[in-house]
Every structure is written in structure tokens, then in C-alpha cells.
């Protein structure tokens, strides 16, 4: 069912959604850019639809809204422990088709990989509802079409801003509020069908030859192992554990889980000093292969959803899209 809303009507809708939900969207975070007098498009709670940035890609992905960067799992004191409490409110997130596909990738690794689902992921994930933002135009670094992630049907509602109105296709009305505040209107969400950059995704890489491909040395010489590509990635899920012993009373403390990155020093450090991937080139190879080969072997879909955020974030201008394309073209070339 489609609806149209004036800003005032959509804001009433939001106000009522917010009674039982936290509503997150990409917004302009004033002055939060890396450089002075620069803004950042990132995720935060919204109260008004005018705050939502429709015409830019968010720098960070939506995953931080339901998979916190730092999350306390439990607290301990002597022999006792207490599980952390999470807000029981729903979580509504404005995000793109590729981002929703990325959440589906996170679900695979967090919920379907192994004997039992990840409890701490699941307890927030079960509250999550999607509002997909239409993509009428592709942004510069997007390559979702090549990855097959440019569309989705997995959403409660869609939204786009057009001629002063907010147009929404509602699949699962949340508490009947979309119908209550909207005026019926024929809407179907719009998704891009082509990107400015099309990428040749390799189909069946020969692991032995990939492993010794000289491109990893080249990327290794360029990469500075800062990890930006992984923290902005909507499908990266790696985390590490930190046990904190409070300074005042080291018998008390907490266990936290915090995002980690395969590019950053220490990620593969083992007890005894061994480290699997010491060079930045090896780390790049590991990440790329996970994104476009290994994950698919296990789960049937590529982990990379082609959002291009890693391209935007890399301070060394390394493009994952270009890297994938090189591997794809080499593969085609090698096959004749």
C-alpha cells in the first residue's frame, strides 16, 4: 500500500513511531567531519524527517545502530556477574537497499554460522525494522548493480522525497501509523539499475594463483592499515573482547565487545607472539577474498554489497571496486 505525506504529516508519524521505537537515519552531523569546518553524514536518532539526508551517501553504515561499536555484555564483581540490559524499544532505521542486503549478510554470520545464534547480536537485531530509502541516482562510488544488491523487498516501508512530499510504499505497517498519517497514493520504491562504475566480479577464483598475485604487494605498499574501510563497511562484523577491571576496584569490571578490523595491527596476534597476516598486502588479500569469494562459498552470496563506502573512506585512495574489477578481468583474461 502506498502513501504520500507532507513533512508535517510525516513528522507526526515519526513522533508516534518514537513512542515505541528509536528512529535512526543518516543525518548531517555538523562539524563532525575529519577536517575543520567539515560536516559528516552519519547515523543518529531523528525527530523530524527534514533531518534525514537523502541526497548523499552516509559516511558510516547503519550497522552501528543495532550492532554497537562498544557493547558491554556483562558486569562482574567477585564471583558474581550480571548481564547488561538493552533498551526494549524497537529500532527503526532509514537505510539503502544495499544496506539492507548487508544486514542480511550480518545475519548470516551472526545468526546462522555455527551451532547457536549470537545472543548479543540477536537481542538487538530482533527489534530492527527497515525503512528503505529509494536510490533514484547512483552515488559516485556505488557498485551495487554489479554485486546484485541494488534492490530489496525486505522492508517495512520505503521512503523518497519528491516535489515537497514524502512517498512511501508500506509493506508492514508499524502499529498502523503509516496508514493513519498518510494519504493513499500509488508508490513503488525506485532503485538504480546502473552505476557509474560497473565492476567485473570474479566468478571462480583460483586460490593458488590469487594468493601469489603481485597486486597484493602493490596494495600492501599503499595501504596504511588504518582500518577505515572495515569500520565504514556495512557487512564487516568482526569484533574483539575486552575485559575491563575498574581502576578503583579491580575485583569489579565488565566484559565488552568492540568492533575490530582485519586491517589493523594486532588482529591476528596469537598467544606466544605469532601473527598470521603481518603485511598490509596480506590483510588486503584476506579482506578482499572474504568479501568476494570465501563468504559466498559458505553462504551463497557475496559479503560485499557494493556500497562503496570503503572507497570513500580510504585515505590512500585504494578502491575495493577497482581491486575486484582487476581480479575479475584477470580471471576472464586467464580463461581465454
Amino acid at each position: 500500500m502506498g502513501y504520500k505525506y507532507t513533512a508535517a504529516a510525516f513528522n507526526q508519524l515519526l513522533e508516534n513511531l518514537r513512542k515505541k521505537h528509536r528512529v535512526y537515519a543518516p543525518i548531517l552531523l555538523k562539524g563532525k567531519g575529519k577536517f575543520s569546518d567539515a560536516d559528516l553524514v552519519g547515523y543518529d536518532e531523528i525527530a523530524r524527517v527534514e533531518e534525514v539526508v537523502f541526497n548523499q551517501k552516509s559516511y558510516f553504515s547503519p550497522k552501528e545502530t543495532f550492532y554497537p561499536i562498544t557493547q558491554t555484555l556483562f558486569y562482574f564483581a567477585g564471583d558474581e556477574f550480571k548481564e547488561s540490559v538493552v533498551d526494549e524499544k524497537g529500532i527503526i532505521v532509514f537505510l539503502r537497499a544495499c544496506d539492507i542486503q548487508a544486514v542480511e549478510r550480518l545475519d548470516k554470520i551472526m545468526l546462522e554460522n555455527g551451532l547457536s545464534p549470537d545472543y548479543y547480536y540477536e537481542r538487538l537485531r530482533k527489534h530492527l525494522k527497515f525503512i528503505v530509502m529509494d536510490c533514484q541516482e547512483s552515488f559516485d562510488s556505488c557498485f551495487c548493480v554489479s554485486m546484485g544488491t541494488n534492490t530489496t523487498k525486505n522492508y517495512s516501508a520505503s521512503v523518497r522525497y519528491e516535489n515537497g512530499l514524502y512517498l512511501s510504499d508500506v509493506k508492514i505497517d508499524i502499529d498502523g501509523l503509516f496508514a493513519l498519517y498518510g494519504e493513499q497514493f500509488e508508490v513503488s520504491p525506485q532503485f538504480v539499475e546502473t552505476n557509474k562504475q560497473m565492476v567485473q566480479v570474479p566468478q571462480n577464483l583460483n586460490l593458488e594463483s590469487v594468493a601469489i598475485n603481485p597486486i597484493w604487494e602493490e596494495y600492501g605498499a599503499r595501504c596504511i592499515a588504518c582500518g577505515r574501510c572495515t569500520v565504514v563497511c556495512p557487512s564487516c562484523s568482526c569484533y574483539t573482547m575486552q575485559d575491563i577491571f575498574y581502576e578503583d576496584n579491580p575485583k569489579c569490571g565488565e566484559r565488552r565487545r568492540v568492533w575490530a578490523s582485519c586491517h589493523i595491527d594486532g588482529f591476528t596476534d596469537m598467544a606466544g607472539g605469532h601473527s598470521f597476516r603481518r603485511t598490509n598486502g596480506e590483510r588486503m588479500r584476506f579482506k578482499v577474498m572474504h568479501k568476494i569469494n570465501d563468504f559466498k562459498q559458505r553462504f551463497g552470496v557475496h559479503m560485499c554489497v557494493g556500497c562503496g563506502r570503503c572507497d570513500n573512506a580510504c585515505p590512500e585512495y585504494i578502491s575495493l571496486a577497482h581491486c575486484i574489477d582487476r581480479l575479475g578481468k584477470e580471471e576472464v583474461g586467464n580463461c581465454g
Partner: peptide, 18 residues
């Protein structure tokens, strides 16, 4: 000389030590 006061949000920190 310009100076900026850095603000720290511990919740966002992944401890990478960069």
C-alpha cells in the same frame, strides 16, 4: 597558531591506538 580541542566519544572507540 590554530588549536582544536579534541572531543572523545569512548563508545565509538575501537582501541586501534592509531
Amino acid at each position: 597558531l590554530g588549536q582544536v580541542e579534541p572531543l572523545y566519544d569512548a563508545q565509538r572507540c575501537i582501541g586501534c591506538q592509531a
